[in-house]
């Protein structure tokens, strides 16, 4: 029944977030900071992961294409659809859950155990809204752009690897990525990304905000944030795919 307790407390936590901000200018500044932190701060790891992910998908697809009747342009189609539908939104969200989720949980957790959260409450500030709301909004705004960049870099990485390895020609790959393209796939990927952004920020903030104790508990909260965010991402990935694509 422990999960019921957490579900209830998460619900109360979310309810407390919905308030009229004390001062919009302060929230705007916080939002700008988080946008920069989540967006610009994640580009390095996202770019690196995406390029190599695209490269591996391309080479593995070629390796598995044993039927000579299937044109090599299929490699481009497979790489494009795998990256757009699954790898960029889901894999990147898992990567971001590790990077941003743990950072949110440890930042808020540390503030909690060092009484900085109490200091906000004493001043009459809704601490959960002040600390968490800008992070949720920032993630839901910036993650789709990060994932779009990831899609582009993934497909680019596949093209570079395929051509450099000599397993697929540039013309075949480019023809493949243009063939029977379904624009809705991008919309679907972005819907998933926004959902995952919400999960990562709220679950991580929830774990950070309810940290009690010291440095050890901050570490545990950080780990829990990543674990539960990742599990929820995978569950919602399945649910959204089932709901939207079937």
């Amino acid at each position: 029944m422990n999960w019921l307790f957490h579900l209830g407390r998460y619900w109360i936590f979310m309810k407390d977030l919905i308030i009229k901000p004390e001062k919009f200018s302060i929230y705007r500044k916080q939002l700008t900071r988080e946008l920069d932190n989540f967006g610009y701060g994640s580009l390095g790891i996202v770019a690196l992961t995406s390029v190599f992910m695209g490269a591996v998908i391309t080479i593995q697809t070629v390796y598995n294409l044993v039927n000579p009747l299937v044109p090599l342009s299929a490699v481009g189609i497979v790489a494009r659809d795998s990256i757009i539908l699954e790898f960029s939104p889901t894999m990147m969200s898992l990567v971001l859950a590790g990077k941003i989720g743990s950072s949110i949980a440890s930042e808020i957790g540390t503030m909690k155990v060092t009484e900085q959260v109490d200091a906000l409450e004493i001043m009459g500030i809704n601490s959960s809204a002040y600390l968490v709301l800008p992070k949720i909004v920032a993630a839901m705004v910036i993650f789709p752009f990060v994932v779009l960049i990831s899609m582009f870099l993934g497909i680019l990485g596949g093209w570079i690897a395929g051509v450099l390895a000599g397993v697929v020609s540039s013309a075949d790959y480019i023809k493949g990525i243009q063939d029977s393209f379904v624009p809705f796939n991008i919309v679907f990927a972005l819907i998933k990304t926004i959902t995952f952004a919400f999960i990562i920020t709220t679950v991580s903030a929830y774990h950070g905000y309810h940290t009690e104790g010291g440095a050890l508990e901050v570490g545990k909260s950080s780990t829990s944030a990543v674990v539960y965010s990742s599990i929820l991402i995978l569950i919602f990935d399945y649910l959204l795919t089932q709901l939207i694509l079937t």
Binding site: M111, T114, E115, Q116, A119, G124
Partner: peptide
């Protein structure tokens, strides 16, 4: 209702609780 009250309260915490 406590909100305006809180603005009349100052508190010094054991560890300072300064925002890092």
């Amino acid at each position: 209702e406590r909100k305006p009250f809180r603005q009349e309260i100052g508190m010094v915490f054991q560890g300072g609780a300064l925002f890092d």
